[in-house]
């Protein structure tokens, strides 16, 4: 069993209205924050026999389901083997 941590964000070329709104609020509080981008953090467990298989499976899951490649990028932050 593996455990994965994934971050999905809007692609950098796409305006993030949520992030912009938060940046504006931070700026109005005088914090020096030119840009904020908001994404989603996901944790999942995965059945795979080795790390290579787990990575391959995770890539497919991210591309097909967890992120919409039209507007989003994903990053696999961590993939670790979990004690059964």
């Amino acid at each position: 069993m593996f455990e994965a941590k994934i971050i999905v964000t809007l692609r950098s070329s796409i305006l993030d209205p949520q992030g912009s709104a938060v940046a504006t609020s931070l700026q109005s509080l005088s914090y020096p924050v030119p840009e904020v981008r908001i994404g989603k953090y996901m944790e999942l467990t995965l059945q795979a026999s080795d790390e290579q298989e787990a990575t391959a499976l995770l890539q497919i899951i991210c591309q097909k389901v967890l992120a919409n490649p039209v507007m989003e990028d994903y990053r696999i932050l961590q993939l670790t083997r979990k004690e059964e």
């Binding site: 809007l10 796409i14 305006l15 209205p17 949520q18 709104a21 919409n68 039209v70 507007m71």
Partner: peptide, 15 residues
């Protein structure tokens, strides 16, 4: 989302 039409629908600009 199912790929039958191109593009996607994002959060409204105004939020």
């Amino acid at each position: 989302e199912s790929g039958l039409l191109p593009g996607c629908l994002m959060r409204n600009r105004t939020l």
